[in-house]
Amino acid sequence: MAVETVRKPYVRQRSAWWWTKNPRYVLFQFRELSSVFVVLYAFLVLWQLWALRGGSDAYYAFLVMWYSRPMMALNAVILAFAILHSVTWFALTAKVPLFRIKGRPPPAALVIGASLAIWVALSLLIVKLLYGGF
């Protein structure tokens, strides 16, 4: 006699708020969200170039807008997201050992530390080139 099966696999629905359940998921979602702000900044730079093309009056008007409080606040938010994205990206570098020291992958702290140090040094160099000495 054939055995009747009552196998009924139940598929659970994931809540739209799944990412709030764990701080690491929250961090991940913010890192994904950071790309939106990075794109936004790219558009702001394009806007700046467009204003520059429009002559000195147009560029002056742009600068007035650029240094306004809401714009400064937006730039601060963009900077925070850019830093979040960069730092979490550099934290990833240690996951892929590109070379080995005495047959072992280099320690994670060394790889991350060196990457961050090079990043900060290059950023400071760019700031120096743009704005002159400190």
């Binding site: 196998r7 696999p9 139940y10 598929v11 659970r12 994931r14």
Partner: peptide, 13 residues
């Protein structure tokens, strides 16, 4: 375990 279909109680597919 999340992300798997449940067969019975705590048993997943």
């Amino acid at each position: 375990l999340a992300n798997f279909a449940v067969l019975k109680d705590l048993v997943v597919d």
